[in-house]
Design a protein around this nucleic acid. Structure first.
Length: 824
RNA sequence: GCCGCGGUGGCGGAACUGGCAGACGCAGCAGACUCAAAAUCUGCCGAUGGCAACAUCGUGGGGGUUCGAUUCCCUUCCGCGGCACCA
């Protein structure tokens, strides 16, 4: 059989596209469109997940280009990070060499897929002309007070030898290497993302083009709670303890208080008392538990009495102060008022330690006396046991109590977030150095902008032991203080790679700028990204950080928009045998292998056809072959039509204009356009073209004199154009064979001819009691009454309803007639 | 526990606004071509009953709304993802 020579064709057109700069922006006055796929870490080899991600993006970019947009479709490298450093340790290759050679290898593989990137805009985050601006941005944050250093208990990954951000700890494990994460007290750099918590939450509403799933995940992560801070005076002390609660309406039921074991005041409370040792032992014991054990909801609640009391400011009663394992030091104020009647955790604790339980909210349709046993009531209700608030609805009391506290200065309504500041420093070498020096006289001094970049020294040794190589490089370490000129030391921590990737999409708009990270007007022009595509695993990390960066940059005046990504498509995973492809499972299919066997067009077509983009895709070797067959079928259809001179047939004899084929052609145009543009349902778009191909085959199989050459040509050319974004190489070849000189990718996307979509006749369904009994072909302009008459008069229908009473007839013009009958 | 998504043939999936369930593809079966195989082409392909025309059932289960439900509502089961001692 004649199969097309994909190797020859694909390399031929890849070269052509490159030489003719087909995908570079030309600065035309066409409307602009920014299509972006999440840039990869240059591991060296692309995997099927990359193939899927980039093929989806490529279809969108090519489609938009054909639709008349000037499309920005760049690619680059998230090139800093640990694997390079690990390779350096294991194989004694410098991370820089390793990374650059990986980039070259991956770039070649991406090009082999025929992706329409504008490589003139390529960025790599590890190059000084990129990280210079990462450092510059850090300095802007620093000057705004949004980058700061503090000592605190941080997540430490013993295997990666570095601290981790909260977002990088998944189930108590390191997101990258799965080692158990422990806690250390360290002095580290943070971005003050919590300052933007409210804005980040609020603006989720602006993101109409984002999946709800991702917005919900971000919203959960930010974790906003509305409540109040309430002050409880400590008995026998001038100090007050402030608690955060979401239920100030239950304050009359607060029968004890709990502090986190790490709370700053604990030591002072017990110092010199008989409780001191017991409390210290308990704190000590908790410190040895991992975070997972510490915070698991299944862990039994346990605590110690401090021997001290505080005053419930509303009841005037003294209540005991405990410390307990279930209170977190870094949420709210690290202290809670415990209301056992209306909080399950507090109730469990109170029952265990014999603390009194006072219900203060009466559930609806409940009579007093009301008692709580082992189930706390957490809903709303009527206030009881609450002094002047008795009888009030609890929601009302919430506000009234807050008001009373605010006027009395004993508390205030407040909001708490789960989101923590972003720990950005890493004790590793292969990252952007934090542009700061330490001076004995001046303290922390930011590196002046004119001295950027703080270059990563290349002449360092990788032992894999102990500290980051930067701490051993004296040439790097020793410097002078920019302020006083005395000897000073450089910061040896580098930035989290998520900092690099939080602004790369802006750099693409102005990649060669040596004066600033990007030109404001260029950024404003191209951004926000019209369509962003990537894996859902970045739902919180990268996507939240990037939103944060853009918001800060707007506030600094670097740009004029609020959100980086207008529309987001999160593609599903590529599975084989029901599991994610991975080396350890041995179910990896190599893209290079598939391209070698079937060509890039087949690989592209398969990943687009096998499932809609958001869903997981199950790899199927037979499915790949099916796609290969389909492409060959097209190849034969077109080449045969050309060789048999069918498309240039003169229509001198009265060749019939085949209305149904013309309908099919134009229906396919509108279907494919809609599927690609509105829904990204590439699978159904491809199905539609397959149907058209089937029709064209049938049409071509007719006797030569029955074939209308112009119609066949219209059908073939339409089919070619519709498939251009999906299988760009073969289609380009066929387009040329059809006699075109310009690239098909610069041709105009076909438009459906509305008149061809008007049918003279339609098939309608005749139902009896909702069940299909007959199908009729009727003239499409029949009125409701005429349609009904025709259906009722049909022989078979008449027979079926004979002897029954027609209760009702529903007619949906052009679609169906439903006859409702009852036995008479 | 809370939130979100999903459940349709042997398989991937389609049915867009409540109107023919299963498009398209894969696998399978039969046939054509061939010495033969591959490739290609043609036909069949949800279940049950029937020689057949056809009938009945069928979109996780149960209920409801409707002339009509894969689609809307209630309820329940199962799977996946996120958050989770967050006061």
């Amino acid at each position: 059989m004649a199969t097309y020579d994909f190797n020859h064709i694909e390399t031929k057109w890849q070269r052509y596209w490159e030489e003719n700069q087909v995908f570079e922006l030309n600065g035309s006055d066409r409307p602009q469109y920014y299509a972006l796929e999440m840039f990869p870490y240059p591991s060296g080899k692309i995997h099927m997940g990359h193939v899927r991600n980039y093929c989806i993006g490529d279809v969108i970019a090519r489609f938009k280009t054909m639709q008349g947009y000037d499309v920005l479709h760049p690619m680059g490298w998230d090139a800093f990070g640990l694997p390079a450093e690990n390779a350096a340790i294991q194989h004694q290759i410098h991370p820089d060499t390793w990374t650059k050679s990986n980039i070259n290898e991956m770039k070649e593989q991406l090009n082999r897929l025929g992706l329409s990137y504008d490589w003139s805009r390529e960025v790599a985050t590890c190059t000084p002309d990129y990280y210079r601006w990462t450092q510059w941005i850090f300095l802007q944050f620093y000057h705004k007070g949004l980058a700061y250093k503090k000592e605190s208990r941080v997540n430490w990954c013993p295997s990666c030898d570095t601290v981790l951000a909260n977002e990088q700890v998944v189930d108590g494990q390191c997101e990258r290497c799965d080692s158990a994460v422990n806690k250390k007290n360290l002095n580290q750099w943070y971005f003050k993302i919590t300052d933007y918590a409210e804005k980040l939450l609020e603006d989720l509403d602006l993101l109409k083009g984002w999946p709800d799933k991702v917005k919900t995940m971000q919203s959960n992560w930010i974790g906003k709670s509305t409540g109040a801070d309430i002050q409880f005076p400590i008995s026998g002390s001038k100090k007050v303890l402030t608690v955060f609660t979401t239920r100030p309406d239950t304050v009359f039921g607060a029968t004890y208080m709990v502090l986190a074991p790490e709370h700053a005041v604990v030591e002072e409370l017990v110092s010199g008392t008989s409780y001191e040792k017991d409390v210290q032992d308990f704190v000590h014991q908790l410190q040895h538990l991992s975070d997972v054990e510490r915070t698991s909801a299944e862990t039994e609640k346990e605590g110690r009495f401090t021997g001290r009391y505080c005053l419930n400011p509303f009841t005037g009663q003294e209540i005991p102060i405990y410390i307990a394992n279930y209170v977190l030091a870094d949420y709210g104020t690290g202290a809670i008022m415990a209301v056992p009647a209306h909080d399950q955790r507090d109730l469990d604790f109170a029952n265990k330690y014999g603390i009194s339980v006072i219900p203060v909210i009466l559930p609806p349709e409940t009579e007093e006396p009301y008692k709580i046993d082992s189930d706390a009531y957490t809903g709303p209700g009527t206030m009881i046991n609450s002094g002047q608030y008795n009888g009030m609805e609890s929601q009302e009391a919430f506000n009234a109590i807050c008001q009373q506290m605010e006027s009395g200065g004993t508390g205030k309504q407040t909001i708490s977030y789960r989101l923590r500041d972003w720990l950005l420093s890493r004790q590793r070498y292969w990252g952007a150095p934090i542009p700061v020096v330490y001076c004995d006289h001046c303290g922390i001094v930011p590196v002046p902008e004119k001295d950027l970049p703080v270059t990563l020294p290349l002449d360092v040794a990788f032992s894999g032991k102990g500290k980051s190589p930067l701490t051993t490089s004296t040439s790097f370490l020793k410097t002078t203080c920019p302020t006083c000129g005395e000897e000073a030391t450089r910061e040896t921590d580098t930035m989290d790679t998520f900092v690099d990737s939080s602004w790369y999409f802006l750099r693409y708009t102005d990649p060669q700028n040596s004066e600033k990270p990007f030109d404001k007007s260029l950024a404003n022009q191209w951004m926000p990204v019209d369509q962003y595509i990537g894996g859902v695993e970045h739902a919180i990390l990268h996507l939240l950080y990037s939103r944060f960066f853009v918001k800060v940059m707007k506030d600094i005046g670097l740009l004029d928009f609020d959100e980086p990504f207008n529309n987001l498509l999160t593609q599903g995973m590529v599975l084989k045998d029901g599991a994610k492809m991975s080396k350890s499972k041995g179910n990896v299919v190599s893209p290079a292998e598939i391209i070698k066997l079937y060509g890039a067009d087949t690989a592209r077509l398969f990943v687009l056809f096998a499932a809609p983009p958001e869903r997981d895709l199950e790899w199927s070797d037979q499915g790949v072959e099916g796609c290969y067959r389909f492409l060959n079928r097209i190849w034969r259809l077109v080449t045969e039509a050309i060789n048999d001179d069918l498309i240039h047939l003169e229509n001198t004899q009265e060749t019939p204009e085949d209305k149904s084929l013309r309908y099919k052609i134009h229906y396919t145009i509108s279907k494919v356009t809609d599927d690609v543009e509105q829904r990204f349902n590439f699978n159904t778009a491809i199905s539609a073209v397959m149907e058209l191909v089937n029709e064209l085959y049938k049409y071509k199989a007719q006797k030569k004199e029955d074939i209308n050459g112009q119609l066949l040509q219209e059908g073939i050319e339409t089919m070619i154009q519709l498939l251009a974004p999906f299988a760009p190489h073969m289609i380009e070849e066929l387009w040329q064979l059809m006699g075109h000189r310009e690239s098909v990718h610069l041709a105009e996307w076909p438009k459906a001819d509305k008149s061809a979509l008007v049918k003279d006749e339609v098939e309608i369904v005749v139902q009896i009691n909702g069940k299909v009994k007959e199908k009729l072909i009727i003239s499409s302009n029949l009125s409701k009454e005429e349609t009904e008459k025709l259906a009722m008069g049909h022989d078979k229908i008449r027979q079926t309803i004979e002897g029954q009473q027609v209760a009702r007839v529903i007619v949906v013009p052009g679609k169906l007639v439903n006859i409702v009958v009852k036995p008479s």
